[in-house]
Nucleic acid binder design. Structure first.
Length: 433
DNA sequence: TCTGGGGTCCTAGGACCC
DNA sequence: TCTGGGGTCCTAGGACCC
């Protein structure tokens, strides 16, 4: 399609907007002293680096770097550290998504900091829209974003990638306004593994066939790709050639599973502690079922020793079919502890545990409700627990070993946490005028 | 001493059926 | 001795994503 036609025609396009260094940007909104400084945010238990400011990236800190390995280096370079504060990020994410939604004909929230948006207009309109989106978010939420606009999701991701890496573009890249030859030359330089949907395994297999850049993959034969790889990669090739074939999420299946899995701040070695873990995690899972309006029919429990330890390893897991579709924390807690009792090896050092609820369905059907009055009562226990927690805090009530007045030794480590600025009345920021 | 968590989709292979 | 073919459903595991 010629540029002159694009300039006048009204185009249906897909925009991919994401927040730059999202967790760091959230921290900066409430602590301006972090601006222009190297900042990292850590995973649960302060385990490893999950987000970095540009300044931290420039100093060579990589995603996934174990914190204990880079701690000294970071200190000597005056870097700032924050534990992850998911209450804050979740709340900020909701604000970002609400604002973005105003600009699209449809919206698909793709992750905590990314959204696809349906957009229309001629070439110039699209560029102006992107700039307007950036300015609105900077003003109303206070976070910086990049915008990529293209005919397909894969190309919108690519355009966003280009916007992020070329500062002169001011965070906006709309493929329609770019010279096709320039697009080609960029695609010839960008490695195929930078593409959405192409990971390291596929990347090395492609390299064996002489396909190393995005341009190489774009020219590849789609039947050959289908035969040697999968429909997934075939779709990627089609999308690179402007044929949309990745559906919107709302047309895809509903949520498949709810997982509650954590690594412990100190290893769990006894049956008693592990059963506590299972009791607490299954109650958390039940709470999520209730808030999503879902009933589970399968329950899995898992545990694992460290992948880095040299001693005996153990990765027990078992899945059981629930007697009826349920969201009942009492039943789930009882079954999870019973199942774990059978499969763990007391004495070994377990560093993580998890509860997975699957076979989810929105409508419990008749079978979910027992014929006895007693079982009908149990169904309400979850609601009561939820209400008490909402009013008096998370630790106010729990079932059995789930009701902790004192933090158990395995609970999460968060030594560098910022306050829950937006989600807890007692931690609201104070403004003096 | 210390190495995240929560998802999705697809495929292959087995069980079972006619 | 020889032992079809095609379909569905389920599960485990791989690959990928943020």
């Amino acid at each position: 399609m010629s540029e002159t036609r694009n300039a006048r025609m009204s185009l249906e396009r897909i925009a991919l907007i994401d927040v730059n260094n999202f967790y760091v940007s959230c921290e900066r909104v409430f602590d301006p002293s972090l601006k222009d400084r190297p900042v990292v945010v850590l995973s649960n238990n302060d385990g490893c680096v999950v987000a970095r400011s540009q300044e931290a990236k420039d100093l060579g800190i990589t995603t996934g770097a174990p914190f204990f390995q880079v701690k000294q280096f970071m200190r000597s370079h005056g870097m700032e550290v924050r534990s992850s504060n998911y209450e804050l990020y979740g709340d900020m994410s909701a604000r970002v998504m609400e604002v973005l939604g105003r600009f699209g004909t449809w919206q698909e929230v793709y992750s905590i900091d990314e959204s696809f948006l349906g957009v229309q207009g001629n070439m110039n309109d699209l560029g102006e829209l992107a700039t307007h989106i950036r300015a609105t978010l900077a003003r109303s939420v206070g976070v910086p974003v990049c915008v990529g606009i293209a005919p397909t999701k894969t190309l919108a991701k690519f355009a966003n990638h280009v916007a992020k890496r070329n500062t002169h573009l001011n965070g906006v890249c709309s493929l329609d306004s770019m010279d096709p030859e320039i697009i080609d030359s960029i695609q010839a330089r960008v490695p195929v593994t930078d593409l959405w949907g192409v990971g390291s395994k596929t990347g090395s297999k492609l390299a064996g066939l002489g396909i190393t850049s995005i341009a190489d993959l774009k020219r590849a034969d789609i039947t050959e790709i289908r035969k040697k790889f999968s429909v997934v990669l075939q779709r990627t090739v089609l999308e690179l050639n402007e044929t949309p074939c990745i559906a919107q999420a709302e047309e895809r299946a509903d949520k498949q599973q709810i997982m509650y899995s954590r690594s412990f701040s100190s290893p769990v070695t006894t049956l008693e502690s592990m059963l506590e873990v299972m009791s607490v995690y299954s109650q958390r899972g039940a709470a999520r079922l209730m808030s999503d309006g879902l009933w589970a029919t399968l329950l899995s429990v898992t545990a694992g020793t460290s992948r880095f330890a040299t001693g005996d390893s153990s990765f027990p897991s078992v899945t059981i079919k629930l007697p009826r579709p349920t969201q009942d924390p009492i039943l789930l807690s009882r079954l999870a502890t019973e199942a774990m009792r059978e499969i763990m090896s007391p004495g070994l050092s377990y560093v993580r545990g998890g509860v997975i609820l699957s076979g989810l369905q929105p409508d419990p059907g008749q079978e979910a409700f027992g014929i006895f009055e007693e079982e009908n009562c149990q169904k309400h226990v979850g609601n009561v627990l939820g209400a008490v927690k909402a009013k008096f805090g998370d630790k106010a009530i729990g079932l059995g070993s789930g009701g902790f007045a004192i933090e158990p030794t395995w609970s999460m480590k968060r030594e560098y946490s910022s306050p829950k600025f937006t989600t807890d009345w007692s931690e609201l920021p104070v403004v003096r005028a």
